[in-house]
Amino acid sequence: MAQEEIWNADVARGYDTPGTGMFAPEVLEPAVDRLAGLADGGPALEFAVGTGRVAVPLARRGVPVTGVELSPPMIERLRAKADEAAVPVVVGDMATARAPGTFSLVYLVYNTISNLLTQAGQVACFRNAARHLRPGGRFVVELWVPELRKLPPGQQAVVGRSEPGYLLVDTYDVLRQHVVSHHFRFGDGAEARTFRSPHRYIWPAELDLMAQLAGFRLESRHADWQGAEFTAESPSHVSVYRLDGEGHDLPDSAQPADEAAVRNARR
């Protein structure tokens, strides 16, 4: 299923959960604080801006924010919070779309890079970030660590989360580094609502190599937005990459040939 089909009007209508989940203040505010500091007084570009969960509060902090987003329904939800003047948005794929101007910060939050389903597409995303950055600018990626150690021998599925009214089951294809997240939401009755999203998981070391190919170096890696130490037990990380030299305006020939496989979304 193409990402345009996944992130449709129905999903966009139910995406925001004000005050809870990824919208909870204890989740959102540290991310906005850290990104505002990393922008260092310059403009920021958010790949896969979605409904503006991060972009809108970051812009209210005084950071000029531009977004790139593939899904028109998600942009429509964003427009209920901020107009084009407050958060301009370029409609397109985060691996190939170009936003006007240059930026001191490009960022990808909440595992979004994993929804580029090929390694070539993920490398193209790093290269696209480099194109948009000023020399010395930063690219920030928030990403989960693959939970393969939880897989029982011979099994392909693991329960990611289990709580009242919600169950997350991830099914793995370790040969292709693919995982499909199955989200089940249910009440007291027999019926449940399901939502599935495909991803290509990335180990931190592979992510660092992608960064090097685009001219970045790893500046820092922490387990969360507050700066906790990243360890072998950390379920996710926030990695900050710094662009070396004078930037990398790579030719179009450096892009993956199969652009249809290069799609953005979010976990």
Rank of each mutant, 00 (worst) to 15 (best):
S197W: 08
P235K: 14
P18S: 13
L148Q: 11
A254R: 05
R79Y: 08
F126C: 09
V145P: 11
L167I: 01
W203V: 10
Q212F: 12
V109I: 10
L151P: 02
T194V: 12
D252L: 10
W7Q: 10
A2F: 14
A257W: 09
T96K: 13
E46H: 01
E246M: 13
D16C: 12
V11M: 13
P88D: 07
L78W: 05
F103G: 04
D208G: 05
L28H: 00
A85C: 09
E219P: 00
D10P: 03
Y172L: 11
P30Q: 14
F230S: 04
N115K: 04
V262D: 03
Q155T: 10
T66P: 10
R176W: 13
A260W: 09
A9R: 15
Y166T: 01
Q212C: 12
E69F: 14
S239P: 04
P25H: 08
D258N: 13
V87N: 05
E163H: 05
V238I: 08
H222M: 07
R242V: 09
A95P: 01
R134N: 06
L168E: 09
P251W: 11
L151Y: 03
G160I: 05
A44Q: 02
G19W: 00
A59K: 01
S234E: 11
S239Q: 02
G41A: 03
Q122N: 11
A95Q: 01
D188A: 03
P25M: 02
T66Y: 12
H132M: 10
H248I: 13
P204A: 15
L70R: 09
R217L: 10
H237K: 00
L70I: 11
Q155A: 14
V27Q: 06
L58W: 00
A254F: 06
A31C: 10
P72S: 13
Q226N: 07
L167T: 07
R149F: 08
P72G: 09
G215E: 01
D173H: 13
L243F: 02
G21K: 02
V174M: 14
L70Y: 02
S104K: 10
M210F: 04
T112G: 12
R263H: 04
P198Y: 04
L250N: 06
L143S: 08
A228S: 15
G19Q: 08
V49L: 15
V238N: 03
L143M: 14
M22I: 05
R79V: 11
Q122G: 12
A99Q: 10
A12T: 11
V158T: 03
V87L: 04
S234L: 15
R127E: 00
V49P: 07
W203C: 14
E69W: 09
V27C: 05
G21F: 01
A85E: 12
V65S: 06
N115I: 00
R149I: 04
S114R: 00
D93I: 00
H183R: 15
D244N: 07
P88Q: 12
L148W: 04
V109C: 06
G14T: 07
L167M: 05
A24T: 06
R217W: 08
A99Y: 01
R61P: 00
E46F: 04
F195L: 14
L105Q: 05
A82W: 04
G154L: 13
